[in-house]
Structures are given as structure tokens and as C-alpha cells.
Nucleic acid binder design. Structure first.
Lengths: 125, 125
DNA sequence: GTACGTGCAAATGATTTGCGTTAAG
DNA sequence: CTTAACGCAAATCATTTGCACGTAC
């Protein structure tokens, strides 16, 4: 995989953004430094970066969102505004894998927990 | 909400199918008993049934899939063939909610764990 | 009887593809 | 130099919408 300017710009933007942005936002941001980039290029690069393990994809309501945080972790999602927050708990990962250990029929290699609720901002409104 | 023939047919099909089918499959199946039904109607009804709590939606790789199993449960997904298996563990639900209990900033009301791996069928191939 | 649902066709929106050109290694 | 990636436009695919007609309640 070649590390083109476009790819580096996308990676750098995502390394500094913990909000799990969707394609549109990534495109708008990267366009500031690379005005000739197209959305198709952003799509191709996001797919390549995910396939090569540089990014993780989170799908919410049919829309792909991306994060550069590669360590196993969990997500908390606000059902009202759609905000996604990372939540780290190795303890929860280990407990989940322990629970599934004796399940026959699958070789499990990854686990993720998703919490749903309402964030404080949306509660206040 | 009115319980039309179309809605009942969709609900009944999903109550007898644990494979989390996508819209296309639901449409093809329901069409057998209601040949004049359209895919738009299936979409509208699936949305209505989810909104009214008769179905749950599972999104995998940007495609919506549906299940009639309403109790909190977890999913095991085969990364190779995409098969989704239900996995019940009240213990895991409780443990997860206990872990998140002291997290400030969200009022959590639901949790789901997703396990990823390879199913025995795909391992054998 | 009336509001809600259906069927049809057309629109939308996210994502992908084909291809000639460009640049990374 | 050679191959992968870019940019552009067109295509694809899931899903939604508008509206006249039909039917559950």
C-alpha cells in the first residue's frame, strides 16, 4: 500500500478526531489541505486503510464511520443525537471472552460491547 | 398501528426465522403469500414494526436485517459468511451494566455484545 | 366513515466502478 | 520505470418518498 498525501491526510485527521466521523465530514476536512481530492478517493482510501488495519469502521444506522483507535474497546451511543463515545474496559473484554469460551460452533477472536442510552446534553434539552 | 395482512405476514415469517434475514429475503418470502406486495411496503412495514417494538433491527455492513426475538441478547457473527447467531446471557448483560454504572455523562438503558469469529462451517472449507 | 396502509414509480443518498492520467516507491 | 492510486463521471444498490387508491378498525 502506497502512502500518498491523500491517505496520510485522512489518517492524520482521524488520529486527531475521536468523534467517529462519517465520510462526508472526513472529505470536507481533508479537502481543506488537498482541494482537488474527490469523495470517491476518500471512499477508496478509507476502505484500503480499514483492510490494511490502519482504521476501524463503525456502522451506525447504515452509515459508515471511522476511527483510528485500534485497541479493543467499546462504544456508548446516544440514541438521540447519535454521538459515539469510546469506552475502554479490558475487564469487560476478558469477561465476555470467558463467557463465550465454551460456545461450540465458532472460533471467536474479537468482542465488542455497545451501550445505548441518552447523553447528558440530550437529557438537558 | 393497523395489523394488515402484509404486516402479519412479515411478523409471522420473522417469528419462524432465526437467521436475521435482510429486506430482500423477507420480501421474496412474503411475496409467496401476498404476490402484489412491493418492496416499498416491506420497508415501510419493517420500519413501523421496529418503531412499535415488534421487531429488532441489526445492521451489518450497512445492510439492515431483522429479528422477532425481543429479549436482550447478544450476537455472534461469522466474518467469513456473515451468519449471525443469537447468544443469550443475562449474566453478561448484568455484568456489562454493572461495569458502565459509574460512567458519568450518559443514562444507559441497553447493552449488546457482539462476538466476531469464524463459524465451524467456514473453518472446514 | 376516516385515518392509516398499500402499490407504483420516481427520487434520494451512500457507496462503488471504469478508465485515462498521475505520482509513489 | 512500473504499479498502485487519483480524479472524474457515471453506475449501482439500499432505502425513502409522493400520491391516488384501498382497507382495517
Amino acid at each position: 500500500m502506497k502512502f500518498t498525501n491523500q491517505r496520510v491526510a485522512i489518517l492524520n485527521f482521524l488520529k486527531g478526531n475521536l468523534n467517529h466521523p462519517a465520510v462526508e465530514e472526513i472529505y470536507e476536512e481533508v479537502k481543506k489541505s488537498l482541494p482537488r481530492i474527490t469523495k470517491a478517493t476518500v471512499y477508496k482510501n478509507l476502505n484500503a486503510l480499514v483492510d490494511n488495519g490502519f482504521l476501524k469502521e463503525v456502522n451506525l444506522k447504515g452509515i459508515s464511520r471511522y476511527e483510528a483507535k485500534l485497541e479493543p474497546h467499546h462504544h456508548i451511543i446516544c440514541k438521540t443525537c447519535g454521538k459515539i463515545i469510546d469506552f475502554e474496559s479490558d475487564e469487560l473484554v476478558e469477561y465476555s471472552l470467558e463467557i463465550i469460551k465454551n460456545y461450540k460452533g465458532f472460533r471467536i477472536d474479537r468482542v465488542e460491547t455497545t451501550f445505548f442510552g441518552i447523553c447528558n446534553t440530550c437529557i438537558a434539552i
